[in-house]
């Protein structure tokens, strides 16, 4: 078995809330998250706001440190590195952000924006070499050299996201974390950017951690997928298998809730959890006993309240954190 590109081990991140006048509180954004990402794949992370997916992205980018746990990127623990080593390591992982209007400095020209990550290289390339790399990269993402001297406001959302992707790829990283990278794009442009990501994976072997709330998008491009709920990974496996037959009720809830051009009118009633459960806010409580999804779960039973399910293998390559996974397996899709 080859070693994975990213090995995330028991990652936990707590945020201290409150302040001078508010009651101090602790929110757990990531709760004992363990997962691996193979090199050369697109790995989707699906979850709703507050599930911890953006915290995960920030920690993977070493913009934030975990409360406990470790991230091993390409054999090296990210948080044991000295600042200098971390700086050098940064060429291997880059990020594409959600908002194509906020992630590009409006006062800089495209050429300078795209070249920014070259800052991490030990040997700073010459001006000419820099320019050459920027031009090659712009062409690789479907923009042309003439556009390098323009400012971001002269581009559409889709083009801006291409610029952001070019910036992320300029150091030839092994990993690109894409946090809702296509969510803000129009449908006709979204598919173009998704195709670009698939092509970059195929042609350059770039690994993408593709974070989104949109199942259809993940289904279209991802090889593997992980589903997060309240800071935990509740299901993982090959994307196709997970969406065809979810093994966690939350994955099913997400899939059912997603509107589709083939679902007309009011959706057929599903076994619904108690009304009060629907109202439960999507914030994290303190780590307690029982399953975090319990209040919203149609399958909830007594065991779910007493014992938190751990992530376990149910089928080859398929993991889920649910006591009733076997029941999901037998239920009609």
């Amino acid at each position: 078995m080859k070693t994975p590109l990213i090995d995330i081990r028991r990652l936990t991140r707590d945020y201290a809330g409150g302040g001078l006048f508010a009651r101090p509180s602790l929110t757990r954004a990531l709760d004992d998250l363990t997962m691996t990402v193979e090199a050369g794949t697109i790995h989707g992370i699906v979850g709703e706001s507050g599930c911890g997916k953006s915290t995960l992205a920030r920690i993977l980018m070493a913009l934030d440190r975990p409360t406990s746990g470790d991230v091993i990127l390409d054999g090296a623990s990210l948080f044991d590195l000295s600042p200098k080593e971390l700086m050098r390591k940064r060429r291997d992982f880059q990020m594409v952000f959600q908002d194509p209007f906020g992630s590009l400095d409006p006062r800089q020209r495209v050429a300078r924006i795209v070249a920014e990550p070259l800052h991490v290289l030990d040997e700073k390339p010459s001006r000419a070499a820099r320019r050459e790399r920027v031009m090659a990269m712009l062409e690789a993402v479907g923009l042309n050299a003439a556009q390098a001297e323009r400012y971001p406001h002269e581009f559409s959302g889709g083009q801006r996201q291409r610029i952001a992707i070019a910036r992320a790829l300029i150091t030839e990283p092994k990993l690109v974390v894409a946090d809702e990278a296509v969510s803000a794009l129009d449908l006709s442009v979204q598919a173009q950017v998704l195709n670009l990501i698939t092509r970059l994976k195929r042609e350059r072997g770039v690994t993408f951690l593709f974070i989104t709330h949109n199942l259809a998008v993940v289904d279209a491009v991802a090889d593997q997928v992980g589903v997060m709920y309240r800071g935990r990974l509740v299901e993982s496996g090959p994307a196709r298998a997970v969406f065809e037959r979810p093994l966690h009720p939350y994955t099913r809830v997400l899939a059912d809730a997603e509107p589709s051009v083939t679902k007309f009118g009011r959706p057929p009633a599903r076994p619904a959890p108690p009304a009060a459960a629907l109202a439960a806010p999507l914030t994290h409580g303190p780590p307690g006993q029982g399953c975090a999804f319990l209040p919203r779960c149609p399958l909830a039973g007594p065991r779910c309240a007493a014992e938190a399910p751990v992530l376990r293998q149910v089928l080859p390559g398929r993991q889920t954190a649910c006591h009733h996974a076997e029941q999901m397996l037998c239920a009609p899709a």
Partner: peptide, 8 residues
């Protein structure tokens, strides 16, 4: 538009 809806 309909064809551009992402699907596997």
């Amino acid at each position: 538009l309909l064809r551009a809806v992402p699907r596997r």
